[in-house]
Write a protein that binds this DNA or RNA. Structure first.
Length: 283
DNA sequence: CACGTCACCTGCGTGC
DNA sequence: TGCACGCAGGTGACGT
Protein backbone atom coordinates (compact mmCIF):
# COMPACT_ATOMS: atom_id res chain seq x y z
CA UNK A 1 0.00 0.00 0.00
CA UNK A 2 2.01 2.92 1.10
CA UNK A 3 4.51 4.22 -1.37
CA UNK A 4 7.09 6.94 -0.81
CA UNK A 5 4.65 9.86 -0.25
CA UNK A 6 2.56 7.92 2.29
CA UNK A 7 5.61 6.76 4.24
CA UNK A 8 7.05 10.28 4.10
CA UNK A 9 3.75 11.64 5.47
CA UNK A 10 3.75 9.13 8.32
CA UNK A 11 7.41 9.83 9.12
CA UNK A 12 6.86 13.56 9.27
CA UNK A 13 3.79 13.20 11.47
CA UNK A 14 5.64 10.94 13.90
CA UNK A 15 8.54 13.40 13.89
CA UNK A 16 6.53 16.59 14.25
CA UNK A 17 3.33 15.43 15.91
CA UNK A 18 -0.10 16.48 14.70
CA UNK A 19 -3.48 17.65 16.05
CA UNK A 20 -4.09 14.39 17.88
CA UNK A 21 -0.63 13.21 18.94
CA UNK A 22 2.70 14.56 20.11
CA UNK A 23 6.06 14.07 18.41
CA UNK A 24 7.71 10.77 19.23
CA UNK A 25 11.16 12.33 19.19
CA UNK A 26 12.61 12.38 22.69
CA UNK A 27 10.13 9.83 24.03
CA UNK A 28 11.45 6.91 26.05
CA UNK A 29 10.19 3.38 25.42
CA UNK A 30 8.62 1.58 28.36
CA UNK A 31 8.16 -1.69 26.52
CA UNK A 32 6.68 -3.41 23.51
CA UNK A 33 3.88 -5.90 22.90
CA UNK A 34 4.06 -8.19 19.91
CA UNK A 35 0.57 -9.30 18.92
CA UNK A 36 1.54 -11.21 15.76
CA UNK A 37 4.95 -12.83 16.02
CA UNK A 38 5.74 -12.94 12.31
CA UNK A 39 5.46 -9.17 12.04
CA UNK A 40 8.84 -9.04 13.78
CA UNK A 41 11.50 -9.92 11.22
CA UNK A 42 14.46 -9.63 13.62
CA UNK A 43 15.72 -10.15 16.24
CA UNK A 44 13.85 -12.91 18.14
CA UNK A 45 11.09 -11.61 20.44
CA UNK A 46 13.04 -12.04 23.71
CA UNK A 47 16.03 -10.09 22.43
CA UNK A 48 13.65 -7.53 20.95
CA UNK A 49 11.85 -6.89 24.26
CA UNK A 50 15.09 -6.62 26.22
CA UNK A 51 16.84 -4.41 23.70
CA UNK A 52 14.05 -1.92 23.04
CA UNK A 53 13.14 -1.26 26.67
CA UNK A 54 14.40 2.09 27.93
CA UNK A 55 15.57 3.36 24.54
CA UNK A 56 14.91 6.95 23.57
CA UNK A 57 13.64 8.00 20.14
CA UNK A 58 16.36 10.22 18.71
CA UNK A 59 14.98 10.82 15.23
CA UNK A 60 12.54 9.67 12.57
CA UNK A 61 13.16 9.41 8.86
CA UNK A 62 12.41 7.46 5.70
CA UNK A 63 14.45 5.53 3.15
CA UNK A 64 12.53 4.25 0.13
CA UNK A 65 9.34 2.82 1.60
CA UNK A 66 11.02 2.02 4.93
CA UNK A 67 10.15 4.01 8.05
CA UNK A 68 13.18 4.53 10.30
CA UNK A 69 12.75 5.24 14.00
CA UNK A 70 16.19 5.90 15.43
CA UNK A 71 16.78 4.75 19.00
CA UNK A 72 20.23 5.97 20.00
CA UNK A 73 22.55 3.20 18.73
CA UNK A 74 19.66 1.08 17.45
CA UNK A 75 16.87 1.64 14.96
CA UNK A 76 13.33 0.36 14.67
CA UNK A 77 12.77 -0.16 10.94
CA UNK A 78 9.24 -0.68 9.63
CA UNK A 79 8.01 -1.66 6.18
CA UNK A 80 4.23 -1.28 5.82
CA UNK A 81 3.97 -3.38 2.65
CA UNK A 82 0.36 -3.54 1.39
CA UNK A 83 -1.84 -2.76 4.36
CA UNK A 84 0.33 -1.47 7.21
CA UNK A 85 -0.48 1.67 9.16
CA UNK A 86 0.81 3.49 12.23
CA UNK A 87 -1.27 5.14 14.98
CA UNK A 88 -0.11 7.21 17.93
CA UNK A 89 -2.65 7.38 20.75
CA UNK A 90 -3.12 7.40 24.53
CA UNK A 91 -1.95 4.08 25.97
CA UNK A 92 -1.76 2.23 29.25
CA UNK A 93 -2.21 3.94 32.61
CA UNK A 94 -3.55 7.08 31.01
CA UNK A 95 -7.05 8.51 31.02
CA UNK A 96 -8.75 8.00 27.68
CA UNK A 97 -6.73 4.87 26.94
CA UNK A 98 -7.72 3.72 23.47
CA UNK A 99 -8.79 0.13 22.82
CA UNK A 100 -6.49 -2.14 20.85
CA UNK A 101 -7.78 -2.36 17.28
CA UNK A 102 -8.38 -5.42 15.14
CA UNK A 103 -5.21 -6.22 13.17
CA UNK A 104 -2.87 -4.40 15.57
CA UNK A 105 0.39 -6.39 15.23
CA UNK A 106 2.76 -4.52 17.55
CA UNK A 107 2.41 -1.89 20.25
CA UNK A 108 5.26 0.31 21.46
CA UNK A 109 4.48 1.88 24.85
CA UNK A 110 6.20 5.09 25.91
CA UNK A 111 6.89 6.38 29.43
CA UNK A 112 4.76 9.44 28.59
CA UNK A 113 1.67 7.20 28.43
CA UNK A 114 1.37 7.50 24.67
CA UNK A 115 1.76 4.46 22.49
CA UNK A 116 2.49 3.67 18.87
CA UNK A 117 0.48 0.89 17.23
CA UNK A 118 1.54 -0.94 14.08
CA UNK A 119 -1.66 -2.13 12.43
CA UNK A 120 -1.50 -4.42 9.41
CA UNK A 121 -4.57 -6.26 8.10
CA UNK A 122 -2.78 -8.48 5.61
CA UNK A 123 0.24 -9.26 7.84
CA UNK A 124 2.73 -8.56 5.04
CA UNK A 125 4.44 -5.73 6.94
CA UNK A 126 7.68 -6.30 8.83
CA UNK A 127 9.54 -4.69 11.72
CA UNK A 128 13.26 -4.93 12.43
CA UNK A 129 15.25 -3.76 15.42
CA UNK A 130 18.83 -3.42 14.30
CA UNK A 131 22.12 -1.70 15.06
CA UNK A 132 23.06 -1.82 11.37
CA UNK A 133 20.44 -0.04 9.26
CA UNK A 134 23.00 0.38 6.51
CA UNK A 135 23.30 -3.36 6.03
CA UNK A 136 19.54 -3.91 6.18
CA UNK A 137 18.91 -1.35 3.44
CA UNK A 138 22.07 -1.77 1.39
CA UNK A 139 20.35 -3.22 -1.66
CA UNK A 140 17.96 -0.27 -2.12
CA UNK A 141 18.33 1.80 -5.25
CA UNK A 142 18.77 5.58 -5.12
CA UNK A 143 16.20 7.93 -3.62
CA UNK A 144 14.19 9.67 -6.36
CA UNK A 145 15.05 13.06 -4.84
CA UNK A 146 18.78 12.31 -4.44
CA UNK A 147 20.49 15.41 -5.90
CA UNK A 148 23.28 13.24 -7.31
CA UNK A 149 20.67 11.42 -9.41
CA UNK A 150 20.64 13.80 -12.37
CA UNK A 151 18.99 13.28 -15.73
CA UNK A 152 22.21 12.07 -17.32
CA UNK A 153 22.79 9.40 -14.69
CA UNK A 154 19.14 8.32 -14.79
CA UNK A 155 19.30 8.04 -18.56
CA UNK A 156 22.39 5.83 -18.28
CA UNK A 157 20.67 3.64 -15.70
CA UNK A 158 17.79 3.10 -18.12
CA UNK A 159 20.01 2.48 -21.13
CA UNK A 160 21.69 -0.41 -19.32
CA UNK A 161 18.39 -2.21 -18.79
CA UNK A 162 16.54 -4.25 -21.34
CA UNK A 163 13.49 -4.49 -19.12
CA UNK A 164 9.93 -3.29 -19.43
CA UNK A 165 9.87 0.21 -17.96
CA UNK A 166 7.02 -0.16 -15.46
CA UNK A 167 8.32 -3.17 -13.47
CA UNK A 168 11.80 -1.66 -13.63
CA UNK A 169 10.61 1.58 -12.01
CA UNK A 170 8.87 -0.46 -9.31
CA UNK A 171 12.00 -2.53 -8.64
CA UNK A 172 13.30 -1.14 -5.34
CA UNK A 173 16.84 -2.20 -6.22
CA UNK A 174 16.70 0.07 -9.28
CA UNK A 175 14.98 3.09 -7.71
CA UNK A 176 13.45 3.23 -4.24
CA UNK A 177 10.02 4.54 -3.36
CA UNK A 178 7.77 4.06 -6.38
CA UNK A 179 4.85 1.62 -6.18
CA UNK A 180 1.97 0.78 -8.47
CA UNK A 181 0.03 4.05 -8.21
CA UNK A 182 2.81 6.60 -8.54
CA UNK A 183 4.48 4.58 -11.33
CA UNK A 184 1.30 4.64 -13.43
CA UNK A 185 0.86 8.35 -12.70
CA UNK A 186 4.49 9.18 -13.55
CA UNK A 187 4.39 7.24 -16.84
CA UNK A 188 1.15 8.97 -17.85
CA UNK A 189 2.56 12.39 -17.08
CA UNK A 190 5.65 11.49 -19.10
CA UNK A 191 3.61 10.30 -22.11
CA UNK A 192 5.40 6.94 -21.90
CA UNK A 193 3.70 3.59 -22.50
CA UNK A 194 4.14 1.23 -19.51
CA UNK A 195 5.40 -1.56 -21.81
CA UNK A 196 8.26 0.48 -23.29
CA UNK A 197 11.68 -1.17 -22.97
CA UNK A 198 13.87 0.94 -20.69
CA UNK A 199 16.92 0.92 -22.95
CA UNK A 200 14.91 2.38 -25.84
CA UNK A 201 14.09 5.63 -24.07
CA UNK A 202 15.78 8.66 -25.61
CA UNK A 203 17.77 10.98 -23.36
CA UNK A 204 14.93 13.46 -23.63
CA UNK A 205 12.35 10.86 -22.59
CA UNK A 206 14.51 9.66 -19.69
CA UNK A 207 15.01 13.21 -18.43
CA UNK A 208 11.31 13.95 -18.71
CA UNK A 209 10.50 10.72 -16.84
CA UNK A 210 12.77 11.63 -13.93
CA UNK A 211 11.24 15.12 -13.73
CA UNK A 212 7.71 13.69 -13.76
CA UNK A 213 8.55 11.03 -11.16
CA UNK A 214 9.74 13.80 -8.85
CA UNK A 215 6.76 15.98 -9.70
CA UNK A 216 4.18 13.30 -8.93
CA UNK A 217 5.92 12.16 -5.75
CA UNK A 218 6.22 15.76 -4.53
CA UNK A 219 2.57 16.34 -5.31
CA UNK A 220 1.69 13.19 -3.35
CA UNK A 221 3.72 14.43 -0.38
CA UNK A 222 2.12 17.88 -0.61
CA UNK A 223 -1.31 16.21 -0.37
CA UNK A 224 -0.25 14.00 2.56
CA UNK A 225 -0.35 10.90 0.37
CA UNK A 226 -3.31 8.96 -0.95
CA UNK A 227 -6.15 7.41 1.05
CA UNK A 228 -7.89 4.58 -0.75
CA UNK A 229 -9.89 1.48 0.10
CA UNK A 230 -10.41 0.99 3.81
CA UNK A 231 -7.05 2.45 4.80
CA UNK A 232 -7.53 6.12 5.51
CA UNK A 233 -4.58 8.21 6.57
CA UNK A 234 -5.88 11.68 5.99
CA UNK A 235 -4.21 12.24 2.63
CA UNK A 236 -6.16 13.29 -0.43
CA UNK A 237 -3.88 12.71 -3.40
CA UNK A 238 -6.41 10.12 -4.60
CA UNK A 239 -8.41 13.11 -5.83
CA UNK A 240 -5.56 13.96 -8.16
CA UNK A 241 -5.07 10.58 -9.84
CA UNK A 242 -5.12 10.95 -13.61
CA UNK A 243 -5.06 7.27 -14.60
CA UNK A 244 -5.00 5.04 -11.49
CA UNK A 245 -8.48 3.65 -10.72
CA UNK A 246 -9.92 5.59 -13.69
CA UNK A 247 -10.59 2.71 -16.10
CA UNK A 248 -13.13 3.71 -18.74
CA UNK A 249 -13.16 7.35 -17.66
CA UNK A 250 -12.09 10.12 -19.97
CA UNK A 251 -8.42 11.08 -20.06
CA UNK A 252 -8.13 14.60 -18.65
CA UNK A 253 -5.80 15.52 -21.52
CA UNK A 254 -7.45 14.03 -24.62
CA UNK A 255 -10.77 12.50 -23.54
CA UNK A 256 -9.90 8.97 -24.61
CA UNK A 257 -11.14 6.32 -22.13
CA UNK A 258 -8.40 5.17 -19.74
CA UNK A 259 -7.49 1.51 -20.18
CA UNK A 260 -6.25 -1.13 -17.77
CA UNK A 261 -3.87 -3.94 -18.66
CA UNK A 262 -1.67 -6.30 -16.66
CA UNK A 263 2.06 -5.65 -16.62
CA UNK A 264 4.27 -7.76 -14.40
CA UNK A 265 1.20 -9.15 -12.65
CA UNK A 266 0.11 -5.65 -11.63
CA UNK A 267 -2.94 -3.71 -12.74
CA UNK A 268 -1.66 -0.96 -15.00
CA UNK A 269 -3.63 2.12 -15.98
CA UNK A 270 -2.81 4.30 -18.98
CA UNK A 271 -4.21 6.44 -21.73
CA UNK A 272 -3.94 4.58 -25.06
CA UNK A 273 -3.83 7.85 -26.95
CA UNK A 274 -1.37 9.83 -24.83
CA UNK A 275 0.96 6.90 -24.11
CA UNK A 276 1.78 5.35 -27.48
CA UNK A 277 4.48 2.73 -27.91
CA UNK A 278 6.87 3.84 -30.70
CA UNK A 279 6.22 0.67 -32.72
CA UNK A 280 2.48 1.36 -32.60
CA UNK A 281 2.67 4.80 -34.15
CA UNK A 282 0.73 4.67 -37.36
CA UNK A 283 1.80 7.75 -39.32
C1' DC B 1 20.01 -11.12 -16.69
C1' DA B 2 14.98 -11.00 -17.41
C1' DC B 3 10.64 -12.90 -16.75
C1' DG B 4 6.75 -15.74 -14.98
C1' DT B 5 4.74 -17.99 -10.97
C1' DC B 6 3.88 -18.60 -6.40
C1' DA B 7 3.73 -17.54 -1.56
C1' DC B 8 2.57 -14.61 2.14
C1' DC B 9 -2.59 -12.63 4.19
C1' DT B 10 -7.32 -10.46 4.84
C1' DG B 11 -11.31 -8.22 3.19
C1' DC B 12 -14.22 -6.19 -0.24
C1' DG B 13 -17.04 -6.04 -4.50
C1' DT B 14 -19.10 -8.71 -8.15
C1' DG B 15 -21.74 -12.07 -10.34
C1' DC B 16 -24.12 -16.35 -10.28
C1' DT C 1 -28.61 -14.97 1.21
C1' DG C 2 -24.58 -17.67 0.17
C1' DC C 3 -20.50 -18.41 -2.07
C1' DA C 4 -16.82 -18.64 -5.39
C1' DC C 5 -13.83 -15.66 -7.43
C1' DG C 6 -10.95 -11.81 -8.63
C1' DC C 7 -8.70 -8.05 -6.97
C1' DA C 8 -5.91 -4.92 -3.80
C1' DG C 9 -0.78 0.99 -2.56
C1' DG C 10 4.53 -5.02 -1.82
C1' DT C 11 8.32 -8.07 -2.03
C1' DG C 12 11.19 -12.21 -2.07
C1' DA C 13 12.08 -17.01 -3.45
C1' DC C 14 12.02 -19.98 -7.08
C1' DG C 15 12.29 -22.05 -11.83
C1' DT C 16 12.99 -21.36 -16.87
Amino acid sequence: MPELPEVETIASQLRNGNETAPSLVGQVILGADLCWARSLAAPDPETFYLTIKGRQVTGISRRGKFLLINLEDQALVIHLRMSGDIRVEPGQNVLREMPIQPHDRMIINFESGWRMAFNDTRKFGRVWLTDDVQRLLQRLGPEPFDPSLDEKRFSEMLHNRKRIIKPLLMDQHFLSGLGNIYTDEALFRSNLHPLRIASTLSNEEAGRLLRKIREVLQSGIDHNGSSIDWVYRGGNFQNHFQVYARVGKACYVCGTPIEKITVGQRGTHYCPACQIKPDEKTD
